[in-house]
Write a protein that binds this DNA or RNA. Sequence first.
DNA 1: TCTAAAATGTAGCTAAGGCTACATTATGTA
DNA 2: TACATAATGTAGCCTTAGCTACATTTTAGA
Lengths: 149, 149
Amino acid sequence: MPLPKTARAASRPVRSAPLQAASLRQTRRAHATETAEDYVEAIADLTLAMGEARVVDLARRLGVTHVTVNHTLARLQREGYLSALPYRAIFLTPHGQRLAKICQQRHEVVVAFLQALGVPPKIAERDAEGIEHHVSPRTLAAFARHLAQ
Amino acid sequence: MPLPKTARAASRPVRSAPLQAASLRQTRRAHATETAEDYVEAIADLTLAMGEARVVDLARRLGVTHVTVNHTLARLQREGYLSALPYRAIFLTPHGQRLAKICQQRHEVVVAFLQALGVPPKIAERDAEGIEHHVSPRTLAAFARHLAQ
DNA sequence: TCTAAAATGTAGCTAAGGCTACATTATGTA
DNA sequence: TACATAATGTAGCCTTAGCTACATTTTAGA
Ligand SMILES: [Mn+2]
Ligand SMILES: [Mn+2]
Ligand SMILES: [Mn+2]
Ligand SMILES: [Mn+2]
């Protein structure tokens, strides 16, 4: 026997449907750019550490096969984040470099923040790899504020 | 002229390849269960607030079409989270209820934590909707600790 | 310089999770 | 009770992102 549609016997804060829908849309949007963010960040890291970024190195760092890397690189090249020629190293475009820098900085702040809260380093690194993509500028600023104290 | 493969001119902490790969694998695992988590949480919320959970209500709250809801419900039913009959309301199995409770609690902690840091409520809600799925038990405990002070 | 091994690329598959367009079933009200 | 409308379901499409198996190209060392 269902309650009337207007019943609201909530014992805890019930998110409004529009707010929750908007939040979930934002989460899906974040997931859509997440791969690009992790790839350009990894390419920037590898370029700095090894002089160039190669497909095998990316595959190793990203925990996927080289086939997946190839496939994704094709899309990211299409979308203007990087340039690549067959059997050659991968280079970020200025657009890709800008994104990489932002992601590197955000990544560092999130990891440092979690560690400052008492989360062990490896767990902080693990969680940060996912959390970072859902941290808005306002929240990132809050993390940085907390770190500055 | 690429540097030798052993070069390591890093000016900032370089994550080891194995740790980064493990972190990204964990992130992908989290994304695989994320939909289930958001659905069971929404179904529990709706059941409490309206007496039952219907496809239209879920679609509205989740910000997707009813077709997507149907499609996903079929999978979640296959995986034992819920039961549903054509043209009837959706019910969580005990398994689904257990997951829903965990997710509801975690969601609340994450939102409260972000707000305690000074993030405005709506932004906290938005970010939490994505962040929650990447918060490990250790990190959740750290959030709760911080809230208790 | 040759050639085996490493790196890279391609073909073709799967699953999740979106969508529009259309079909069917329930339901509330005249 | 009839029937218009709301709710639900189905068909069929797309993109992302994974994979294995196999083909091709580079490259390093004998
Ligand atoms: Mn990441
Ligand atoms: Mn995520
Ligand atoms: Mn969520
Ligand atoms: Mn949630």
